[in-house]
Design a protein around this nucleic acid. Structure first.
Lengths: 221, 221
DNA sequence: ATATGTGAACATTTTCACAGCT
DNA sequence: AGCTGTGAAAATGTTCACATAT
């Protein structure tokens, strides 16, 4: 399983969502085409993505929904719970800390931190906002493995350094800065302003954007 | 200027951020290398990205910071204000509606909607949560051009249909569903669960992830 | 000497097309 | 017949390297 692209991993994530849905509806098997249509890609792409990890289907039949789901969950590491902390208790940090889908998918938000005395001590559901000074201790106690960074731009890098020093090797960054992290630390960025700006570009330059119909099937019938 | 990739557009957005920073510090000129280092890419990439839109530099000298900034803003459509509405007044909708960076960059959040009578009428700063039933009228009155969709998964598609019917041609979707929109409508998705899942993948499969040092310069010195 | 702009080389990702299994 | 798994082809995106301008 060498050199799998980010795009492939993100699509696997979508396949899991689709398979969960199919399972809920009692679907037994699905073809690469069926998966692709629901995931918004092509059957060839589905088969290629899966082929990096093994062969999961039966020729002539397609894939068993529960089996493929189980395999993909194992590949993505979703067959276990992860300890997550949110650093930054502003509106975005709060929204993320209490986002119900994270818990549903096994991402357990076990702590929230801020450095603002006004916020420290606030209770949200069963979370209490903790002092960022206590971060190392709490990380150890609660086995934090993934950090969601929702501080302002100014503090993001220094918080990142701190959490990396605590042994965290995965950061999801919402602060609008390019973080420097050592090799071996996974870093994903969610940048909301560039997302809006790319829409602004599309509105401003309709020619450059006439691309794909975001409508029906991606494949020839 | 045909067929510019999404990646190029997103990088332009980053260049704008870097240039704004340089301008604030009083920088007069910058080389493709200087821009690249700050933006986390390579000088060749910077020059190639810019070359899709024209030639902005002076050989031997580099780029004038204010001039390049002005050009890039025009290309991205950031030399004007955009009318933005947020639909869905949950925690995420609220965080986005009040996110100060949007206003700073010319994305004016002019309305927030929900269908929950409990939320309708709430005031946040100078925004009032409106009834989603009034959407068409308010969109016309306030000239809404971009919609941030922050509803639950169930209502997202129907809201999308509504706003498209109102003439909106750009949607930033935070709901965890694949929206179907007609050709010509720009759609960007922010999916937080897949972001976390790709980190979970990286933690679970360190071999497949040994890639790039997210640290120092991308180029040979 | 310095640094852009760009065609050509390279790398990566996606799509095609088909052999092979059910 | 139906559908997977996969090499080969095509398309797309990135990097090189250099002619050209200051």
């Amino acid at each position: 399983m060498r050199n799998v692209s980010q795009s492939t991993v993100r699509r696997l994530s979508v396949y899991v969502r689709v398979l969960e849905d199919l399972e809920r509806r009692g679907g037994e098997t699905v073809s690469s085409r069926g998966l692709a249509d629901r995931a918004g890609t092509t059957s060839a792409q589905v088969r290629k993505d899966l082929s990096y990890f093994g062969s999961f289907g039966k020729r002539g039949l397609g894939y068993s929904v529960p089996e493929l789901l189980k395999s993909l969950r194992a590949i993505l590491g979703l067959d276990r719970a992860w300890g997550v902390a949110v650093v930054g208790a502003g509106r975005i940090g709060q929204a993320l800390a209490r986002y119900p889908d994270f818990a549903d998918k096994g991402f357990d938000v076990r702590a929230v931190f801020d450095n603002d005395p006004q916020k420290i001590g606030q209770r949200w559901d069963d979370l209490e906002v903790l002092d960022v000074g206590d971060l190392p201790q709490v990380f150890r106690e609660r086995q934090i493995e993934i950090v969601i960074l929702a501080t302002g731009a100014e503090s993001a890098q220094s918080v990142a350094n701190q959490v990396v020093a605590c042994g965290v090797r995965a950061i999801l960054n919402f602060a609008p800065v390019k973080l420097q992290v050592p090799a071996g630390v996974g870093l994903n960025n969610v940048n909301m302003v560039p997302e809006l700006e790319s829409l602004s570009f599309a509105l401003t330059n309709p020619q450059a954007t006439a691309r794909g119909v975001s409508g029906a099937s991606q494949e020839p019938s």
